[in-house]
Structure formats: C-alpha cells, structure tokens
Amino acid sequence: MKKLLLAATALALTAGMGTAQAIRMGTEGAYPPYNFINEAGEVAGFERELGDELCRRAELECTWVKNDWDSIIPNLVSSNYDTIMAAMSINEERKAVIGFTQDYLPPAPSSYVALQDGVDLEGGVIAVQTGTVQASHIAETGATMLEFPNIDQVFAAVRNGEADAGFGDHEVMRPFVEESNDLVFVGEQVNLDEGIGVGVRQSDTELREKLDTAITAMKEDGSLNALIKKHFGDDAQTYE
C-alpha cells in the first residue's frame, strides 16, 4: 500500500514535467495580420508563426488558446494560460500588472481612418478598440472617444457614421483600407508604444528569460526580420 502511494505521488509529481515544458499561449484571434482564426479554425498570422518558432527554440511545447481582448490580461494573471502574444504593445500601464519580454516588433505607427478627408480629429468622435494604447491616446486628446470590443466594430462605426474617424494600429487597418472603396487614411500617423512584446506573469521570470533568449537569437540571425517582411510587406519596419 505504501509503495503504491509513493508510486502514485511520484507519478503525479512528474506528470506535469514530461519531456518539454507545456505552455499555453493566449491570443485574441481577431487582429489580422498579427493573429486571426483561419478557415480551418486555427490561430494563424504573424504571431502564430513567430510563437511556434520561439517555442521550438526555447524547447517548449506550446498550444494556442483564444481569449477575448477584454479579459486577456486577467486570464493571464489567473494562470488560465502562460503568455500573451496578441499585438500587445509594451507600456507602463500594462507593466504594472504583467511582465513583458523584449519587443519582437519595433514600435508601430497608429493611424486614423475616415470616410473622407478633413474630418475633425481633435474635437470629433473617434472610434477605438477598448483597452488598447490607441484608446489611451484618444482619451488624452480633446476628441470624444467611442470604445468597441474589437477592431471590426471600429470600422463598422466609421462606416455607419456613428464615429467621424477610427483610430488603430496602422498595419491592422492597412488591408481594410486598401481593399475597401470607401475608407481612407486621414491626418498624421502617431507613434505610441515601445514595441510589441510577449506578455507573461510577473512571477514567471524563468519563462520570460527563455523567450527573451529565443527572441534575441531570432533578431541576431535575421529570421525575425524575414518573418516581419513576410507578413507586413517589404516596407515594414525591421530590426537593424
């Protein structure tokens, strides 16, 4: 009996370890080309490919988990998954709650979209996705802010006249604007963030170090730049 108990405890203790550490990667899945759900129902996009490569280099066994943007940070700190790779910009406000690896994308510009030129960006109604760096920026300008749970509804609000303009990540908005015949970019681009990094729990220093090492290696051998160009075009900002 005692032996059996010992064996059972040993099994229970080692079961979690396996060969490689199992990591669950949280993402929004509604932010192309960073991350989206493809036709097969799987997470795809730049961050999927990058994340899989980081896991391979850091010898982690990764599975992808979809989570709404609204609750993506609370669910990380309560350990429903272990990382966030969802185009999350590194900023002071978030650093107070979670930890970040070094950036895997250089600071990206944010842009305004509208139905025509000449809308009032300083005093008009601007639609943004809630909880983004763009939302924090609009809150500091004189404009009236309208918040939506995802980027899709930001465009819908601009199209049906609810908002004068939408404000969001340039790379996300670009394909929507280029492929539509009504939306245009207006005003100046704004640089808001310190780049995009992998979000991890503050207590999870070991995982952060592993991912940091893998990102550094990918920056050094140029494979990260190649991946950025593949997903964001040849004009995209890359690392030196």
Partner: peptide, 30 residues
C-alpha cells in the same frame, strides 16, 4: 494537496499554483 513547494498562491497580481495542481493540466488536450 499536490505541491511540495510552500510558495504562496498569490504572488503580487498573479494567481500561481504548481504545474501538477493546474486544473486542467497544461498538458491536457484541448
């Protein structure tokens, strides 16, 4: 019951239990 570490469950903002205590385990299929 399952973890032999006496690290606190709440560490700052984080709610952390050891790998064996996760429900379901991180290794479990989707």
């Amino acid at each position: 019951a399952l973890c032999d570490s006496d690290a606190p469950v709440r560490q700052g903002n984080d709610f952390v239990v050891c790998a064996a205590a996760k429900l379901p385990l991180s290794t479990s299929p989707e």
